[in-house]
Amino acid sequence: MTGFLTRYGAALAGVALFCGFALASPVFLTAGNMAVVFKETAFLGILAVGFTLALVTAEIDLSVAEVASLAAVVTGALVHGGQAPWIAICAGMAVGIACGAANGLAVTVLKVPSLIATLGTAAIAKGLGFMLTQGVAFVGRWPTSFTGLARGNTAGLPNLVWWLGGVGLAAWVLVKWTRTGAHLVATGEADEAARLAGIRTLSMKRLALTLAGACAGLTAVLLASSLSSAAPGMANDHFLYAIAAVLLGMSMFEPGRPNIPGTLFAALTLKVLGNGLVLLGAEYYWQDIVLGTIILASVALSAAGTGRAPFVKKLNFRTGK
């Protein structure tokens, strides 16, 4: 029973939250509101999947949101300037991948701890975003071949849900069912043992951080496509959400480990929570307070052992132990 609660307790709490809001607010369950929740979950989820992949190798990528913002304005600038959508999309992805690869090199070649390296990348991305736009947003009537990526439905489901499902599935298969995934996990769990067993741990870290960048790039393209606009800092609201989703996700399904299903379910739970709070009339700032509490609690209180995860040990959070 305790095993069951450790695995599924947080997920059940999420379900309970969902039911609670459904009872308390007449608007919550409407198709329109659910669509909003799922779309928001898609942006958050894809970004958080990237964060999860980095964390699987025990590296922390604090740059995902700023990189996504930069990639979004690059994409937006190109679409806005009349470039073909596929060029803009490739450019957005390329920005994400390049930033991720840069993080990977900073961590594995320059040996800068990821916490610091990605903070640096985040600041640079932020600056570049403002340089590119001079602080002004790109807004316009963009071609539907671009906006259609994220808007509309396919086979009865919002396109964004398909994107999230596809990315989530791909990441899950990678981590759980491929040799590369096993090597990513081993790198995060026991760096030195993995290296001595012949696993190329530095390559694994570079790969994970690059994939995190790619997820940020995709999030950016979808954000720009969905909103028909791009502004500096546009993905930044997802930053705390993404961290909270990954940490909360570590209390589900595979307790104590960064895991894709946990991240996705936690992302949905957090967006349900944020949406429900707004519907119930809570001021906007409560979302941040609740997020912060979840971030703290998921490491401090986790019966699942998130506090013993290698990345936490690496940060030496557990002082005196």
């Binding site: 096993a182 090597h183 996990v185 081993a186 769990e189 026991a190 043992a193 993995a194 067993a197 012949g198 696993i199 104590g256 480990r257 013993r308 290698p310």
Partner: peptide, 13 residues
């Protein structure tokens, strides 16, 4: 690797 399973450790790498 302490948190990995027996088979994961035996076939590590």
């Amino acid at each position: 690797a302490p948190r990995l399973s027996i088979w994961q450790n035996v076939f590590l790498g």
